[in-house]
Design a protein around this nucleic acid. Structure first.
Lengths: 203, 203
DNA sequence: GCTTGTTCTGAACATGAGTTCAGATTCCGT
DNA sequence: ACGGAATCTGAACTCATGTTCAGAACAAGC
């Protein structure tokens, strides 16, 4: 690989690793450079500023991650198989990052940086698209089969993931949050409740 | 009111207003003091440090907000009425804060500050309790009636809210996110999907 | 081996943050 | 009206961060 591209790559990966290890608060120009084995100055040789590096790192991991998931979508024919594969991928991602998602950390910074906010929006949009078709594929024989993949469907999935990850992140002990996954029915109720539909009082 | 308590109160409120107006990034000791009409020094007369002020502000609004919602729980007998009242309260909260939730902003800081993280956990726990009983009350004649208020149920509600608010926050144009509320069924599917239950392929 | 361009270093600078504190101001009981 | 305690001010200090830049280190072609 050309040395230029290699250094860039190393910086991107250092950024992601730093985000996962130190959180957004601990992700400074110096700490990123250190993780990558560089002096602080390199960042400004390869990127316009720190913000640009963060944006590039987000785009990089978002893209890479989506490719892996998309691949699963293509290679699994059966719903059960697909589900298992997706779980596997998710578990890998979490393990690799010490159970803290670098992308999640970046949401933190969206308030301060418009550029990052825009990139996050694109990330979310992209994932909602993926999620929509994935869900569509996964609900073969369910009571709710036949639901069409829509933007809304995807966004719902993404929103749920964000919420769960936020709680996971708060609560050092992840088991408590994970136990949530065992209850399914209430969700539909909640959605109805705040969706503007009255809970049909007598039916 | 005793001057001491009044100043404290004013600082708490200034903190919340600053968070909503400037975001977490723009919420500094100086900006909070300025919002409250103080010099920066007062903060350290009334609180140990900035972190303590943030924690106190979180506890304050969490408590106050919960009281208001709890009151609705007590005063509304009918499910439809309760739902309307809760919507009203939520709309008020959002309007008062310019559609940015101060509490949501604080999640941002949970990475850096353990004290704040702990307080947020308590906040979430407290709200999950409220949400559980609220949902229980709201599902009178629904297909899913009879669900018992549990900690998990409450946490699910909180997670959904967090996720939705995060998206809302990202996307300046809130209407896009709000349209999500119109789709209900997919949620149950999603939950099943990632909950560890296989989508029963043939049923 | 020399030269030219690329890549990296690390000390230095500017800025803004949290915080401190000596003194000004205000409050209140007597 | 006085005096002392409570409250507030705002300039100043410390520190970490993003950023710059002059030069060192390296690579490649001749």
């Amino acid at each position: 690989m050309a040395p230029r591209a290699e250094a860039r790559q190393r910086l991107l990966e250092a950024t992601v690793r730093t985000l996962a290890a130190e959180g957004y608060g601990g992700t400074t120009a110096r700490s990123i450079a250190k993780t990558g084995g560089f002096a602080p100055g390199v960042i400004y040789y390869h990127f316009e500023d720190l913000e640009a590096l963060l944006v590039a790192a987000l785009r990089h991991t978002s893209q890479a991650r989506r490719d892996r998931y998309e691949e699963a979508l293509g290679s699994c024919t059966d719903a059960t198989e697909l589900l298992a594969r997706l779980r596997e991928l998710y578990a890998e991602d979490m393990r690799d990052q010490g159970h803290i998602d670098a992308v999640q950390e970046l949401f933190t910074a969206s308030a301060t940086s418009p550029r990052l906010r825009e990139e996050l929006l694109a990330h979310v949009e992209s994932w909602s698209e993926f999620a929509a078709t994935a869900v569509h594929r996964l609900v073969g024989g369910t009571a709710l089969a036949g639901v069409v993949p829509s933007r809304e469907l995807g966004m719902i999935a993404v929103a749920m993931f964000l919420g769960i990850q936020t709680l996971t992140h708060l609560d050092g002990d992840r088991s408590r949050v994970e136990s949530l996954f065992s209850t399914a029915e209430p969700v539909a109720i909640l959605w109805d409740t705040f969706a503007g539909r009255n809970p049909t009082p007598e039916k």
